[in-house]
């Protein structure tokens, strides 16, 4: 069984290093409404009940809910937050969520992120250099 690796380069939103399995959400994401900070579970229909704790959130962009950064903070305190965020295009609320809990976040990649990355791929996020390594099994 071979291991396939791919490198994507993007624009740094927040620095830091983290790695984990990918949680791919195909619609714009909001910490308010799409996520339960008490359990770490997703509340969106395509991924209802799946656990985001310790994962790398992969999504097209953020949306709505200006309360998002506080929800993300509660999740961090409870240990239910994702460890990094990578997306096509950051919106201010999602960016502030990552900055507030100080997890690495990168956007605007040189390749099509959502096409290249699947849930359960292993992802290494180098937020200091804006590089993401996707490891497929």
């Amino acid at each position: 069984m071979g291991v396939f690796k791919m490198i994507l380069t993007g624009h740094i939103i927040n620095k830091g290093n983290a790695e984990g399995y990918a949680m791919v959400v195909n619609t714009p994401f909001s910490f308010i409404g799409d996520f339960d900070p008490t359990t770490g579970k997703l509340l969106i229909s395509e991924k209802m009940g799946e656990d985001m704790r310790g994962k790398v959130l992969v999504c097209p962009t953020g949306k709505g809910g200006t309360l998002g950064p506080y929800i993300a903070y509660h999740a961090m305190i409870r240990g239910t937050a994702p460890v990094a965020i990578v997306c096509d295009k950051a919106d201010p609320i999602l960016a502030l969520s990552a900055i507030t809990i100080d997890i690495p976040m990168i956007d605007n990649f040189d390749k099509n992120l959502l096409k290249e990355c699947c849930t359960d791929d292993y992802i290494k996020v180098n937020g200091n250099e804006g590089i993401v390594e996707i490891i497929k099994k």
């Binding site: 309360l67 998002g68 201010p92 609320i93 507030t100």
Partner: peptide
């Protein structure tokens, strides 16, 4: 104003 979040 921008579309600020609670912490900004």
């Amino acid at each position: 104003t921008n579309r600020e979040g609670t912490t900004s």
